[in-house]
Amino acid sequence: MFYWFGRQTLQVIFGIGDYSLFTVKAFCALAKSKRLVRRIVSAVHEQGTVCLPVILIVGLFTGLVLGLQGYHVLSRFGSQGLLGTLVSLSLVREMGPVLAALMLIGQAGSALAAELGIQRNTEQIVALETMGVNSHGYLVVPRLVASLLVFPLQTAVFVVVGFWGGSLSGSLLLGVDSGVYWSAVQRAVEAQDMRECFIKAAVFGVLSISTCAYQGYHSDRNASVMGARAVSASTTRAVVFSSILVLVADYIISSFFV
């Protein structure tokens, strides 16, 4: 029993160390990577353009729901005027960065893990290495750099669409004066909140994309499953681990800002 516990603990520590090494190695490969801009552009496409519809839809509905729920709670106290405050602060501080990151993990992160997993499986990653191409530099770095750019942008889009969603349900459907709503939005959000929002988004981006890349890149690590199963297992792990990491990091960052 104790042996089992010890082994599991060591495994977790080894995993964390290995993952950190992987990420650091990737950033070190940044300098050596060639023709990086084009790879980054296509990575921005993968994480940005491709995922934009999901971000728009989820952002809109998050705003709508926040407006609806917030209105009913606030109207109990007769302070519907604070609806803009509620919607904007919850979007900017929490919902925006977290939900956008989760959506991006679901779409771009899982795709990345599966892609790298298959490339590992079909020896494409080894082939890169034998060509003298730094596989971190070629496969991982562009994605990480793109995530630093894309996650904050997607979060911004998410938040703005969420504001509109909130105003749609709050003022159009439920009758809060739209001037009151928007002025509350503008009054509530401060530079500090924006900073928190974008720091979170960038951190979530690097965390989740590096986790997904790590899982895909090392999809052959787990000896108990092979082949297609290994790819699916590593994709699952990628999504689960990076989602958990995002929520844990969210708590930690929030605790710094509050």
């Binding site: 921005v44 940005g48 353009t49 942008l153 889009v157 703005v160 503008q186 530079a191 909140d193 924006m194």
Partner: peptide, 27 residues
């Protein structure tokens, strides 16, 4: 591909600018 990426980045930056200038500094 470049066009779609360009559109996405512009859209994102527009949202970002709106948030920081219009909302973030409103107070």
């Amino acid at each position: 591909l470049e066009l779609s990426v360009g559109i996405f980045v512009m859209l994102g930056i527009a949202a970002l600018a709106y948030l920081t200038i219009q909302v973030g500094t409103g107070s």
